[in-house]
Design a binder for these strands. Sequence first.
DNA 1: GACATAAATGGAACGTCGTTCCAAGATATT
DNA 2: AATATCTTGGAACGACGTTCCATTTATGTC
Lengths: 231, 231
Amino acid sequence: MSICGMVKKTSGAPRREESLSRERIIDAAIALLDDAGESGLTFRALALKLVTGPGAIYWHVANKSELLTAACDAIVARAMNAPLADATPEATLRAIALGMFDAIDAHPWVGSALAHAPGQLPAVRILERIGQQLRLLGVPREREWTTVSALLSYILGVGGQNAANAQFAQAEGLNRADFLESLANTWSELDPAEYPFASSIARQLPDHDDRADFLTGIDLILKGMRSLRRG
Amino acid sequence: MSICGMVKKTSGAPRREESLSRERIIDAAIALLDDAGESGLTFRALALKLVTGPGAIYWHVANKSELLTAACDAIVARAMNAPLADATPEATLRAIALGMFDAIDAHPWVGSALAHAPGQLPAVRILERIGQQLRLLGVPREREWTTVSALLSYILGVGGQNAANAQFAQAEGLNRADFLESLANTWSELDPAEYPFASSIARQLPDHDDRADFLTGIDLILKGMRSLRRG
DNA sequence: GACATAAATGGAACGTCGTTCCAAGATATT
DNA sequence: AATATCTTGGAACGACGTTCCATTTATGTC
């Protein structure tokens, strides 16, 4: 490839500066995923970006699924380790949930990766953070599991839909607004006799605020927990 | 978008008995997905089952994604058109949610397909059914959207996790119980200083009842809606 | 410094996938 | 019977995840 093949490494550095490492691979994977979406992560593209061959990557990473989960975990860890202002457990729960929403909004592929790695480290990080607040809130032991898994399921559900929306829009070359607009048109054209609700609510689709709706859902669950604690 | 304009077909002789059709293809796809999971659906396997070539299938179906969504829609339509006993709107909402849970439990790939087809027909069917009950319940117009999307997100979230669990377990050749057991072991071995909640709750993992937990989450949201209506 | 051992690399190759292409067969129309 | 259209199915393309292995680079030993 290069004409002047013999580039004398002057220094006696411990390792090649540009040597591979799990960390460098994961960083490159994140960059690829952010730039080109879920389908942008390939061992070939990764090798190209890291100036090596596909085979070399397998020395540091078992397979693609592990790599994707590791990339996902890096983002989730960053979001879940962010310091939070001291506040009531409920306010903290809202902040945790919003942190995940924003992380998935910035990296839609994380929503999809999270959905495909149930019970793995990334999900456990979220579970842990939520669970600690539930204990501060005084949720009785026998209701801990159902409560934490309800919150987690909701967060993963919204995240997964956001990821799918982003991927769908990208596949059709649309931005979010145009994608929602075309969806609203499709819904509007549904038979009002068969789909009275969907066709009547279609026009609200393009103008709604995902983030606000997400938070409203969290508040709905928190309100339900509160009324359970009192009743 | 139009179905199929040519309605000549006065004669009785339909076509070859074993000729291809969209319906026959979708049925075969469902059988393949049920038997071998998400990765079992291949145009080659489908062609083999239908005794034809891969190219012929493309005359009736645009691509794999459309086929998967159509197969998903067939299952969802079956679940959402099931007759429900007349009951309070809240009881009907619970029945609708449970119907989706059971459908995904019987066909885990539906959970994953639903998550990848946001705003498409299968999801709209669920949205519609839920929305109609919300109107009977008297939810004010300005809260319709956030309420229905909270319920839908939760249902899709649980469904997606169930699908992922099933796929993960199948990939490792385990049944559900063994998979949860191995997950519980992993969680138990987490550092209790860093993961006090996850490690302490790990032992509840193998024995919990997915269906009951799902319903508890639905009730949590319904309770939140009720307290909102009163407050 | 020379040698042996192990770690790490990268390019070629395998098998599978979704999809496209097209020559041939089947059916409908004149 | 001839023509036009719908439908089929097998071959082929390009891209993917992954494996294999000859080669290079670093480390430890005398």
